[in-house]
Design a protein around this nucleic acid. Structure first.
Length: 1002
RNA sequence: GGGCUUUUAGCUCAGCUGGUUAGAGCGCACGCCUGAUAAGUGUGAGGUCUCUGGUUCGAAUCCAGAAAGGCCCA
């Protein structure tokens, strides 16, 4: 007996039961045990930041990963199943700050770094546990007790090893860079933190126009505009565009220099003195405010050239402060200008800025304006609205600061990175192009962050002799510090900061730099740290490189990049062979999901409402190179699909129980079964073949589309046609065959789809297989992935069924057209225009057709005069390459020919002459040879028309209804009452190659 | 400014190396079944394949340019 099945299942509830079953029976452990020692499939999991609950976008990637791993497991391959958590970095710190109600770095310092670090670790552990639970609910099978954490000493030590390697190669340096800086977070933001909707806001600032006197001239000033008056103390240059026109305009005894296009706007009453090109102003010197500040000693004031200067806003003369702007800094390097950095990390002016020193940048605008007025630099002020960058974490306005950071030089490794990336198989291929583009254009890798909870950079610059020591391992730190073991609970701040080393060169005591590392170092080292590269090289070698990785597209220049960089540095090869990139997840209207917009869907809610399998199907059916529109609407149609399968399954169980059908008792040779059974079994094995091929290429979307098409055939054709076989009371071979066939289809399907929809497939398998056969594997996931039984694949059979379905479709359409319901029986149907082989198929399967259409008998006619229209059409793929420009003439000749006559000429074996004009003379072609070359195929009429004969109150009538849409639109002819037939050569076209017949043309 | 990518039916997407009349699912309209029934199922209407040029006997498909959207870099 099978367990009775409800017709309206609660999938989500069933999934929870299945989870319990897996847990209690230890299915996953058994799977790993079975596959142990098999050929390896190495997968590296991209660490998820253990900082928040799982989002539905995470679930997409996790589903792909799980599908791949489950499939590989069903192939018997040994896997590591190691999940990973990203634990360090700003993301974690910011969330902990929010929890604590902090809003500045100083509060963290006041609290004590040790407490803060503990809080960070706790948060990571809390969310790692939640994420593990949620992933399990999604059905993801991982070795959850053995997840890797990027905050471990092991991970950190492996990064140290990498950094030391970089130093040995001479790539490591301390450099200056102007970076977007959040004063609240007290840290720089990397460029990738400056993208997205959260990164800019429309803000209004006080913009000021100032006049800066030209040195050595009285009454002549540059007119300059800035939205950031606080940067004026760091001004060292003015930039003009060399090609633009600059006007000298006199107003009230002063002469101002500004872009001539802006004169009307800024100095409408002024008098134009002269106009010069920007080029002529280059090298001029000028005077400016805050000249007396000690920080400005030796700073220049010079006019430079810059092509980016525009005339849309301001004055066409741009104030340059290299310590306060990224572009300014670039210019300072081009022109060797001083870099004055006025702000410390909290936004307070550093010493050397006179009355500004010690003041915060946010509160000095009024005083600066006042100072400008007092010294005669002030010209005007305005409120100016613009899009301004803000911190994505805390939404504070960003400033730009020149800061010292640590970098890895990448010029030497760049070509190797490009080569290694080109050896990776990228899915889709455009991901590889993107990676190449990024590798070609990327700058040096800025690896330091001025924060707390992160990888401690093992850099020990000696204050005495200047030697930089980079510690490459824990043992080395122990030996250099003379402390063994190290007196630290973990390799994190603040504890690690207490460890000082003796400079190997001069013996001085050296402290670690305060910076922590970029979190992409943490994730990038994973192919080494998780495989214990430093301490167990043979183990590492067995699993490196990964066969497969997959993440969202943005990871190309993040995780994929950092892994590649570290791996090429250490081993000169890519750490992965195949990388699959998927796109963005949007809501069902195509908009980005956003907490604030209220369109975000939470994982817990989604899995409860739609169930994990539906979610998974939704993810997998999406071609990875398109954005996924996720929501309850799309889920609804997936649910329908699942219910369709469920209904077929429920049907089987219902009747099998009535008949006490036991699949382990009954047997029948598939080859001996009825046409329709052999057909669905052929379809099933074709499906199996297709699923394997697709999954071998990590292509789940193809599997879902093949499976959906199969399930449709199974439900709407096989089962609908076969229902009666289950109803009848007697037990005969036909009934047994029906049960066996359906059972086999459902069981195979459950195994084929198990990697995609593990819960539903498990339900089916348990009931259909396990309940009848206690010797069968305990779970569908412990079966091997089905192999196609090639003897059961009969494409000819599948083609035949296609033809039958097509003929039935024609019949139904015909009935609809003349409004004759299927309920009304008809005496005869006449099929016109089938090929010989098609006719025999139709005759062979006539009972199916007649039953579906409720017609008594069926007749095929080659031709019915007056019922058809014959068309002669050229075989283009054959004639085109041969005749090229003359083809239109052939077409015209064929059109003008009397097709009826031509047909009878050809069928009687006579040559058909086609004339056309060529080189001023008439040429001819023997169509008899052309015939053999299958230019035309008039001997067989491929297109079909259909006629019905039925009993009406009046006399019998013939009502002609053409024709299949696939072979031609006869619809205009229907309207006019004229049936048609067309000639086609589809089959021969497939069989023959044009080259064989080139010589046959006279 | 450079790179990648997308644009096909109301919606979401297929369309292999160019070949006669461009497909599917959903939605919609009109039906059928009533022994899978808060299920199943049939038929049909919907498209200037973003635009402009080019190559070709022939272009949704190849090439060039443009427009619009998405993404990455500068």
């Amino acid at each position: 007996m099978f367990t009775p099945v409800s017709s309206k299942p609660n999938l989500s509830r069933q999934e929870e039961e299945t989870l319990r079953f897996w847990q209690e029976e230890g299915i996953f452990d058994r799977l790993r045990e079975r596959n142990q020692g098999g050929s390896r499939f190495s997968f590296t999991d991209g660490p998820i930041t253990a900082n928040n609950p799982m989002g539905v976008h995470h679930a997409w990637g996790r589903t792909i990963k799980d599908m791949v791993q489950r499939y590989q497991a069903m192939l018997g391959r040994d896997q590591r199943y190691q999940n990973g958590f990203d634990c360090q970095g700003l993301w974690v710190e910011v969330e902990v700050e929010k929890e604590l109600g902090f809003n500045s770095k100083k509060q963290i310092e006041a609290m004590g770094l040790d407490h803060f670090s503990r809080q960070c670790r706790q948060r990571v552990e809390r969310y790692a546990s939640l994420l593990s639970q949620q992933s399990q609910r999604l059905g993801q099978w991982m070795d959850w007790d053995n997840s890797y954490y990027t905050m471990t000493d092991n991970n950190i030590e492996h990064i140290w090893h990498f950094l030391r390697t970089c130093q040995a190669k001479g790539w490591l340096y301390r450099g200056r860079r102007v970076m977007p800086w959040c004063l609240r977070c007290g840290t720089s933001l990397s460029q990738h933190e400056l993208v997205g909707a959260d990164s800019y806001q429309d803000l209004t600032h006080t913009a000021v126009f100032i006049q800066l006197p030209v040195a050595g001239q009285t009454g002549l000033s540059f007119l300059v505009w800035t939205t950031t008056p606080w940067t004026l103390s760091a001004n060292v240059a003015l930039a003009v565009h060399p090609e633009l026109d600059y006007a000298f305009v006199e107003q009230e005894g002063q002469t101002y220099i500004l872009s001539s296009r802006l004169v009307g706007k800024l100095l409408p009453h002024g008098r134009l003195v002269k106009t010069v090109k920007g080029l002529e102003l280059l090298g001029w010197h000028y005077k400016g405010p805050f000249e007396q500040f000690p920080a400005r000693t030796n700073a220049e004031r010079v006019v430079i050239s810059w092509e980016e200067v525009g005339e849309e806003e301001g004055t066409g003369i741009v104030h340059i402060a290299p310590g306060c702007g990224a572009e300014d800094y670039e210019l300072s390097r081009r022109y060797s200008l001083s870099v004055i950095a006025p702000l410390d990390e909290n936004g307070d002016y550093v010493s050397g800025f006179d009355f500004l020193s010690g003041r915060n940048v946010k509160e000095v605008t009024a005083e600066i304006l006042e100072d400008l007025r007092r010294h005669g630099y002030f010209f005007a002020a305005e409120e100016y609205s613009h899009r301004y960058p803000i911190c994505w974490r805390c939404h504070e306005e960003l400033v730009f600061r020149a800061v010292d950071e640590w970098f890895i030089r990448c010029d030497e490794v760049r070509p190797n990175l490009i080569r290694a990336a080109s050896e990776v198989h990228w899915i889709p291929a455009s991901a590889g192009k993107r990676m190449e583009d990024w590798l070609t254009n990327m700058g040096d890798w800025c690896i330091s962050r001025k924060r707390f909870w992160g990888l401690p950079l093992p850099f020990y610059p000696c204050p005495q002799c200047g030697r930089l020591t980079v510690v490459g391992s824990i043992a080395e730190l122990e030996s250099l510090s003379g402390q063994q073991p190290l007196p630290v609970p973990e390799l994190h701040r603040p504890w690690i900061d207490e460890v000082k080393i003796h400079c190997p060169q001069c013996g001085a005591s050296v402290e670690r730099v305060p910076e922590v590392g970029d979190c992409w170092l943490d994730a990038g080292i994973v192919p080494f740290s998780t495989l214990n590269y430093l301490h167990d090289r043979p183990y590492w070698e067995t699993w490196f490189p990964a066969e497969f990785i997959t993440e969202m597209r943005e990871q190309i220049r993040l995780w994929f990049y950092s892994m590649l960089f570290m791996s090429v540095t250490l081993e000169d090869r890519a750490p992965y062979r195949q990388a699959l990139v998927y796109e963005k997840l949007l809501d069902e209207k195509g908009e980005a999901m956003h907490r604030s917009r209220g369109n975000a869907i939470w994982f817990d809610e989604a899995v409860e409402k739609m169930g994990a399998d539906v979610m998974r199907w939704l993810y997998i059916s999406q071609p990875i190179e398109n954005n996924l529109l996720f929501g309850y609407g799309p889920a609804e149609s997936v649910m329908r699909r699942m219910l369709q399968l469920w209904n077929v399954y429920a049907f089987f169980v219902t009747y099998a129980n009535i008949d006490r059908f036991d699949p382990s008792v009954y047997r029948s040779d598939p080859a001996q079964r009825s046409f329709i059974d052999r057909w669905i079994l052929s379809r099933l094995n074709t499906l199996t073949k297709g699923c394997r091929k697709a999954l071998d290429a990590f292509d789940g979307a193809t599997v879902t589309s093949l499976a959906e098409s199969f399930m449709d055939d199974l439900s709407t054709w096989w089962l609908r046609r076969s229902r009666r076989r289950f109803w009848k009371t007697e037990e005969d071979q036909d009934k047994t065959d029906a049960y066996l066939t359906l059972h086999e289809a459902l069981v195979t399907l459950s195994r084929l789809l198990a990697p995609l929809a593990p819960f539903l497939c498990e339900s089916l398998y348990q009931n259909l297989v396990r309940s009848a056969d206690s010797q069968a594997p305990l779970s569908v996931h412990l079966t091997l992935y089905p192999e196609p039984i090639t003897e059961l694949i009969d494409t000819g059979l599948e083609d035949k069924m296609d033809l039958v379905k097509e003929v039935i479709g024609l019949g139904r359409s015909a009935r609809n057209k003349v409004n004759l319901k299927v309920r009304q029986p008809l005496r005869e149907m006449i099929l016109v225009g089938l090929t010989f082989s098609e006719q025999s198929v139709v005759k062979e399967l006539a009972d199916v057709i007649l039953e579906e259409l409720n017609i008594k008998s069926l007749r095929c006619e080659d031709r019915i005069l007056g019922l058809q229209q014959i068309l002669l059409l050229p075989n283009l793929p054959m004639l085109g390459p041969r005749y090229g420009k003359r083809l239109p003439q052939i077409r015209r000749a064929l059109q003008e020919m009397d097709a009826e006559q031509a047909l009878s000429t050809l069928t009687s074996g006579q040559p058909l002459r086609i004339w056309w004009l060529w080189r001023q003379s008439w040429m001819k072609v023997s169509a008899r040879k052309a015939l053999r070359a299958s230019w035309f195929m008039p001997s067989r009429t491929c297109a079909r028309s259909l006629a019905f004969r039925w009993r009406t109150p009046s006399a019998p009538t013939i009502n002609p209804i053409p024709a299949s849409p696939r072979f031609g639109s006869a619809s205009p002819l229907i309207c006019s009452g004229k049936p048609s037939v067309r000639h086609s050569w589809r089959e021969s076209q497939q069989r023959r190659r044009r080259t064989n017949y080139a010589s046959k043309i006279q």
